[in-house]
């Protein structure tokens, strides 16, 4: 374990353990962020590589005003956006939605107590990925950094170069949009009987069982 300043100092001295620690702490996080924006393992790997290499070059000038993690995230985020820009030069980049009005809940089914066979199924996992992929990129990134990676609102704002209040608004929208998608999916799963368990005709349905 290193404190932030110990880590920077050890990295400057090219301490291999400090490198391992840095890699173990940040490589997966940065990869996930890049993956969510770019959707390509090769490109995401390239982003991790470039971000770390840039950090190595900057080590001597690193002022410690930004945390290493924040700095890496920021570099990786900007590099991912640059890559997107190159890929699709004409399309508006962050597909910014208009910020008017909150998404209004439509589905009011409580699926929290759904059985694990539904909540933790492979199909549900794919549905989670589909839902997050449909979010506007900015909302997606905010949701990932705040709710999945557990960063603070302030740190997220710094990484994305947006205001704290923008982070809050976008996170709120992202959560409500995802809730809506998942509610639609899970309420559907709860109301349909699992395949293969259909009762043969002529057999009485058990009473009081609500699938």
């Amino acid at each position: 374990m290193f404190t932030e300043s110990e880590l920077i100092e050890a990295l400057r001295q090219r301490n291999p353990e400090a490198f391992s620690y840095l890699f173990e702490t940040y490589s997966d996080k940065i990869y996930r962020l890049a993956m969510s924006l770019l959707g390509s393992e090769d490109e995401a790997e390239g982003i991790v590589q470039d971000s770390f290499l840039r950090l190595f070059e900057k080590l001597d000038q690193f002022e410690g005003r930004a945390k290493l993690g924040t700095w890496l995230y920021r570099v990786a985020y900007n590099a991912s956006i640059d890559l997107l820009r190159k890929r699709r030069p004409v399309v508006p980049l962050l597909d910014e939605p208009d910020d008017e009005g909150l998404p209004v809940p439509v589905v009011y089914v409580d699926w929290c107590q759904a059985p694990e066979t539904i909540l933790a199924s492979e199909e549900a996992s794919l549905e989670l990925e589909r839902a997050i992929a449909q979010l506007p990129k900015r909302y997606r990134t905010v949701f990932i950094l705040r709710d999945i990676e557990g960063l603070s609102t302030a740190e997220t704002a710094e990484i994305l170069s947006i205001s704290v209040s923008a982070v809050k608004v976008q996170l709120h929208r992202a959560r409500l949009m995802l809730r809506e998608q998942l509610s639609a999916y899970f309420s559907e799963r709860l109301s349909t009987k699992p395949k293969g368990l259909a009762q043969p005709k002529g057999l009485a349905q058990p009473k009081g069982v609500n699938l």
Partner: peptide, 17 residues
């Protein structure tokens, strides 16, 4: 359901390289 949504993503979201 919003809290459950966040919980499910947190559970699923930490895949490594």
């Amino acid at each position: 359901t919003t809290q459950q949504t966040i919980f499910l993503y947190r559970k699923q979201g930490t895949r490594n390289i």
